[in-house]
Amino acid sequence: MQKNTFKRKTLPSLAMAGPVSLWMILFVTLPMLYIIYISFMSRGVFGDVVYKFSLESYETLLDSTYFKVILKSIKAAFVTTVLCILIGYPFAYYIAKKPKEVASKLIMLIMIPFWTNSLMRLNSWLLLFQTSGPVNNFLLSTGFIDTPMSFVYTDGLVMVGMITNMLPFAVLPMYSSIEKLSRSLLEASADLGASGRTTFFNITLPLTFPGIFSSIILVFIPSLGIYTVTDMLGGGKVLYIGNIIKNQFGSIRNWPLGAALSVLLIVITGLLIYIYTRFAKIEDMEVL
């Protein structure tokens, strides 16, 4: 009898759920725990890790140089998120109101550019805005400016890169929540005397809020940890948390500090997810 349950239940469940569980424990749970552990160690003279409990790394985070970068990153991620939502919502709304056939083509049209290597797309902004690039040439030829403007390696260009890279991740969840919104609810509102505007603020916006929140998470968190955009468009002059973490595990070799910064990102992520789950289920988040 017992052998039978083993064969009928335990064995198949082990065979099927086993590999994925093992992978997650080995390569997600363990590394996560280990990086938290390392963040409480300290750095040796030669960049090695001294295995003794210390809050040194966390104290360093409050140091004005690092603290400034953290604030700047959060600000940049915040601005990116707000702009992506503001730009993306009307766009998502426009697509969602199209007939299904057309809408799926329009969504496809958003995805196509994203099958081009993301670094090459960032590089394009650089080519466009570089000192002797097309934009400067155009401005010079029309006489708007006398000397080329320096767009390259500025916060502004980094922001352009951030927004264009993140926009689809903002549009897709908002699109699917607007698309899911039942037409009869909007009609009911109009039927009861609400104009288009009133309906939007009373019905559409509150009911698509979960989609907006998904967008916020899908834009804000990656923006906070990004370093490719700053590397490509900021030329090492613009630094975000992501760049600092990368450097701690590369040239600078301060693992505990890098780990502490990572833990900071984990905490912020966890916090946002916690707030999100109070409004909606995490399983419903439109990740794709």
């Binding site: 039942s182 009869s184 609810l185 009911a188 509150p206």
Partner: peptide, 13 residues
């Protein structure tokens, strides 16, 4: 004129 909708269309929030 006012309407009673097929699937009620009550505002869920």
């Amino acid at each position: 004129v006012n309407t009673v909708f097929q699937n009620y269309a009550l505002f869920p929030h």
